[in-house]
């Protein structure tokens, strides 16, 4: 079933690429706007070989993982405090309601005013993008822990820290994982968008900057190569990494959100 689904996706993907190649070669659309797939793939190989694509990819990934880590730690601490103290719960609820719907890119001018153009601003944009969905999911996880687990914990004499890490965290894991998936998607989009605005250091940057830069110089095969790289990374993380984690955890445990 799963295999036939994958085969179906590959066939559709190949058909779309074939159609792209035909349209491009037919002259219906300028090759400057829509270069043939074969040319894009050659450009991809060239950029990869030159090292520019890998460096851009690693820069973007590094910032995304740093942002998710920092946002994750912050979200975890805030969710834990919210679970313990009503005042913190009310404050984090209010902040989440106000800030969660705001796209990071909309706050970029504010962040630039505070931190200037550079790495810190990019990191802050990513942290803003991930921290609110993570707080929502982790808090939902904590409140959904069955009451009987708390009673079992107190029966076995678990003190607060042991109880928290041995029961609360694993029992909330399906929600935490769901939050991480949302956080990844939002962080990735935020990073690429912010990079397109100013790169990472002002003079160069990650994949967003790579794509934007290629467009400026009308290197459209290179631009599409960058977009292809973004798509490949998205598939690897969402269908590969998260799928692997789900298989090793929640699916094996027979639980779901």
């Amino acid at each position: 079933m799963k295999r036939s689904r994958i085969e179906g996706s590959i066939i559709w993907f190949a058909a779309l690429l074939g159609l792209w190649e035909i349209v491009s070669r037919s002259g219906l659309v300028s090759q400057l706007i829509m270069p043939p797939v074969t040319v894009i793939l050659r450009s991809f190989a060239f950029e990869w070989g030159s090292g520019e694509l890998e460096i851009s990819m690693l820069l973007s990934l590094g910032f995304v993982f740093a942002g998710i880590s920092a946002g994750g730690i912050g979200a975890f601490i805030i969710s834990a405090l919210s679970f313990q103290f009503d005042a913190v719960k009310r404050l984090s609820g209010m902040l989440t309601a106000v800030l969660h719907p705001l796209p990071g890119i909309a706050l970029l001018p504010v962040f630039i005013l505070f931190f200037g153009i550079g790495r810190i601003t990019l990191l802050v944009v990513i942290i803003h993008s991930v921290i609110w969905p993570l707080i929502i999911n982790i808090s939902a996880g904590f409140t959904s822990v069955p009451a009987v687990y708390r009673r079992i914990g107190s029966n076995y004499g678990l003190k607060s820290a042991a109880f928290f890490f041995r029961i609360m965290v694993p029992a909330s894991f399906p929600h935490i994982l769901s939050g991480l998936k949302t956080a990844w998607a939002r962080a990735w989009r935020a990073a690429v968008s912010a990079e397109m605005v100013f790169g990472i250091t002002g003079s160069g940057g990650g994949l967003g900057w790579f794509v934007y830069n290629k467009r400026i110089f009308m290197d459209t095969p290179g631009m599409y190569a960058g977009i292809l790289m973004l798509a490949i990374l998205g598939i690897i993380v969402e269908s590969g990494l998260f799928n692997l984690i789900e298989n090793k955890t929640v699916r094996r445990w027979g639980v779901s959100v």
Partner: peptide, 21 residues
Amino acid sequence: PQPGRKRIMVFQDSHQLFPWL
């Protein structure tokens, strides 16, 4: 006394085992 390890309760709940272990 508070609950403790010398008086263990088996609750009336079919999901007492931790699914992650």
